[in-house]
Nucleic acid binder design. Sequence first.
DNA 1: CACAATTTAATTGTGCACAACTTACCTATC
DNA 2: GATAGGTAAGTTGTGCACAATTAAATTGTG
Lengths: 144, 144
Amino acid sequence: MTEAPRLDRQVCFALYSASRAATAVYRPMLEDLGLTYPQYLVMLVLWESEPKGVKELGDELGLDSGTLSPLLKRLEALGFVERRRSGEDERRVAIHLTPAGRTLSSKASGIPQHLADAAGLSAEELEQLRTTLGRLTEALHRSN
Amino acid sequence: MTEAPRLDRQVCFALYSASRAATAVYRPMLEDLGLTYPQYLVMLVLWESEPKGVKELGDELGLDSGTLSPLLKRLEALGFVERRRSGEDERRVAIHLTPAGRTLSSKASGIPQHLADAAGLSAEELEQLRTTLGRLTEALHRSN
DNA sequence: CACAATTTAATTGTGCACAACTTACCTATC
DNA sequence: GATAGGTAAGTTGTGCACAATTAAATTGTG
C-alpha cells in the first residue's frame, strides 16, 4: 500500500507558500518605486556594487540570461540602469546604475524592516530562519 | 545617510532562493511523471480528496483561477483529471481524478523522502522549519 | 597564424503567478 | 417572476523562471 504524500506535511509547499506570501507583502511597497520583486533583487545587488555583468548578476541571484536579459531591458526602459557593451570584451554587457537608480536606494531602505514587522517572528527566530534556509539552499544545490 | 539593504541579509531572498532550489530538486523526478511542480501540488490536493471545485483548490493552494484554469486544462490534456460542469450549480466545475491520475499517486510516493534526504537537515530541523514557515506565512497573510 | 573549444548575452518557447475584466449562473428580496 | 447583488470560472495581458538554441567574441593549443 503506497500512501499519497500529504500536502500540509511538505516542506516544499511551506517554502513555496511563504515565498509567495513574502513577495505579496513587498508588492505594494515596490509598486510605489515602480519595481517588481525580481527587479528589486537586481537593484539590491547593484546598490552594493556596480557596474556588474549580466553573468555576475546571474551568479549572485541564481538567474540565467533568459530571465535577466528582458528584466534588465525593462529596468533600462524605467531609467534605473544603463546597459553598456564593454570595450575590452565585446561579449560583456556592463550594467550601470543611473542617478535615478541610485536615488531609489534610499526610498527602498525602509522595506526590509516592514517585512520583519509583518513576519510576526522574533529577531532571533528570523535570524535562525535565514541561517537554516541558507544551509538548505546550499545542500539542495549540492544534491543536483 | 540611508543604507542600501544588503541582499545577503534578506529573509525574503533566502526564501526565494530556497523555494527555487527545492523545485529544482523536484523537477527531474516530476519530469518522469510528466508533471510540473504546480501541477504536482494540485495532484497532491486531489489525492487527498476529490472531486474538488476550482475555487476549493485555489483556497488550499493560494492560487486563483487565472493560474488554475489553464493548469487544469493541461492536466486534463495529460489524462490525469477530468473537468465536469456541475449539474446542481452550473457555475461550478468539479475536478475528478482519472484512473491514470490515481495511479500516479503511488509513483509519486517516494518524492518527499528524496527531498528530505537532499535537504541536509535533521528530521527535527525540517519539522521546525516547516512549523516556522507556517507561522510566517500566516502572519504575512494577516498583515495584508 | 589557424581553428577548436569556451564564454557571454540574447532569443525562443512553455508554463506559472497575478491583476483586471468578462460571462454565466445563483440567490435574495420584493 | 423581475431584478439586484454576489459568486464561480474563464480570459487577457504582463512579467518572471527555465530549458534549449543561437550568435558573437575570446582563449587555448598545435
